[in-house]
Design a protein around this nucleic acid. Structure first.
Lengths: 151, 151
DNA sequence: GTCACAGAGTCCCCTGAAGGAACTCAAGAA
DNA sequence: TTCTTGAGTTCCTTCAGGGGACTCTGTGAC
């Protein structure tokens, strides 16, 4: 969709946006995650144009985020998350956490997450992979890495 | 930009997408975060159309994610992250982590993060706010919450 | 006092993506 | 044989994105 090609930028944020950087893709992934795996289910739930849904699904399959698999001898297909796609859902949980905090208002969060390990209704917290302490935007320095050149 | 109004959906992901759900906004936030605070700096760094940049900045200010403040007696302004915006940058770090893992390829990540607390080059890890254990997409049940109705 | 300048936009035109509705196609069911 | 269902295609209209030129406002130089 975007006219500008983000995938060529030397920035992992821009490259990720090339995969899910328009508003329907994250919602498609969310729906697939919660068990809406078929074209018509997705179309009905999201209210998205069939044309655009086709484009999004093809793009997500091309990117290796979803897998298209037949579930019948008739030409019927369903979409499931790959490992790459499942890890994108982590991003959606963080997104949902921000929306819960800043946008949900009086009514409270529309969806809750129960953590298997402890059984509690909970949310995600960002921690350093190295020391395990809290790690947020203000807790880091940004440095150039090995893949910094555009070529 | 989007013709569909995501803000009305009873979904914190959709609502968040109404704030940063098109590809330029996250990149604008990233740039502001690393110290590119002025209109022409952003325009030059991103290569974005001036018209679109104006729209994005206004939207982000309206949403309370950025603050527009004068820095001169002449009509000169710079954009800074609010607390709400800074917490969105957390989301960008998760996004960058996914891109680093799945899209960076041979060259490696273009940007590294050094954690103030431990001084190490590191990344973010998602953990349960309740028990502190790892918490990813496959580690949770999704349940309806109090704000589930659309009204 | 006038001129050039720089930052921060605004305006205009063109292209192409999003929305919406109707149409197609394959294969099993009645 | 016709009906139905899932999974798309096709076509048309409208509006957002890209690009470049233009504007506006104070300042400092001459």
């Amino acid at each position: 969709m975007q006219r500008t090609d983000f995938s060529a930028m030397a920035c992992s944020i821009a490259r990720t946006l090339d995969v899910i950087g328009e508003p329907w893709s994250p919602l498609v992934l969310r729906d697939v995650w919660v068990g809406l795996n078929r074209f018509d289910q997705l179309q009905a739930d999201l209210g998205i144009s069939r044309k655009v849904l086709t484009e999004r699904l093809n793009h997500l399959v091309d990117q290796g985020v979803l897998e298209r698999r037949p579930y019948d001898r008739r030409p019927r297909y369903e979409y499931v998350l790959t490992e790459k796609g499942t890890e994108l859902v982590d991003l959606l949980m963080v997104m949902a956490g921000w929306g819960d905090k800043w946008l949900a208002g009086e009514a409270g969060p529309p969806v809750l997450y129960r953590h298997h390990a402890c059984g509690e209704i909970s949310g995600v917290d960002l921690r350093c992979t190295h020391c395990g302490e809290s790690m947020h935007a203000n807790d880091v320095d940004v440095l150039p890495g090995p893949g910094v050149t555009t070529s």
